[in-house]
Design a binder for these strands. Structure first.
Lengths: 165, 165
DNA sequence: GATAGAATGTTATAATATAACAATTATTTC
DNA sequence: GAAATAATTGTTATATTATAACATTCTATC
């Protein structure tokens, strides 16, 4: 497991390049285990996803890719994103149409996210109680869960304290 | 409050036109109370949302509107949807880019949804335990909740029993 | 090095959503 | 009731997000 952020909503305090390195190392491990092919291009896109440390849209990734000299078109990005989602290396934030690195790849889980509506910073949490409640509620209706989307938007600590500037 | 559906995931069992009427009556009440103007066009669109009894896309609504003789363009629909969202009369299902009638308008709440990936039927639930867990989890990180997106997709009872056909 | 499958390139287009400004309708104020 | 104001709707154009379809190239065996 990589070194956790010292304060999730204060990203300037953590060593970001180490954070990316750690994410890539984990990604390689996960792919090796699952038999996924983390090609250079896929890895590059995963890196770009981690770079901003907040959810990134597909077309922003496309720009970045091109800036880095790749001749890329939308399918290039979307295919990589699809692969990364399948491998559990990134999550899609539905409410933003954007993608963010998974902080616990390799562990099968549904993401639960706190999304700051001001700085767009996202923190992934995994509250077991919520999963239990959802499971129970679904079961009671005879519903079989495939996928969960739990996205809480609001103001993070940091933005709350500075939002009146 | 309107008559509840006899079985949420078996919509053919309930009186759908009564269901729409009830939704419209509630909508009028809610708007009256909140000072929102439920114009004929907005009401028509709300009606169309309820008609299918499952989430509908904006462009499907646009088609239906035109079929009913309105000369409408995308902004017509999106503006009405925006109004209806503001008044709490519909919810947006982020994972489907679609809109569905709110079953408890007037009661301020965040929706929690079970979305069948096969028949696209949606049931709105309101599990207080989940709200509490989310509130607590958010509070512990100094996060101030504005909006919740909780969407569980999977197979509903009905589709589970017939999914091997 | 032939071949099968996976990955990528390329072009076009679908699906979802909004910006900007004009025209109309409703509401308030005098 | 007429003028002024605000809200709603019309209209055109375009932005944003995502996928289809088919050609080409790369990779891993055999």
């Amino acid at each position: 497991m990589g070194k956790p952020m010292s304060s999730p909503f204060l990203p300037e305090r953590h060593d970001h390049s180490a954070c990316i390195d750690s994410a890539l190392a984990q990604a390689r491990a996960v792919c090796a285990e699952q038999g996924g092919r983390l090609t250079p291009q896929r890895q590059q896109i995963l890196e770009l996803v981690w770079e901003e440390h907040k959810p990134v849209g597909a077309y922003t990734l496309l720009e970045r890719l091109r800036e880095q000299g790749r001749k890329a078109a939308p399918p290039t990005v979307y295919r990589a994103l699809e692969f990364l989602l399948e491998q559990g290396l990134i999550h899609r934030i539905e409410s933003l149409n954007a993608y963010t690195g998974c902080t616990a790849p390799g562990t099968p889980h549904h993401g639960q996210f706190l999304v700051c509506s001001r700085c767009r910073q996202v923190v992934e949490v995994d509250v077991q109680g919520i999963n239990q409640q959802l499971d129970q509620s679904a079961r009671s209706m005879g519903f079989e869960i495939e996928r969960q989307t739990v996205e809480i938007s609001g103001l993070c600590t940091d933005c709350r304290s500075t939002s009146h500037e």
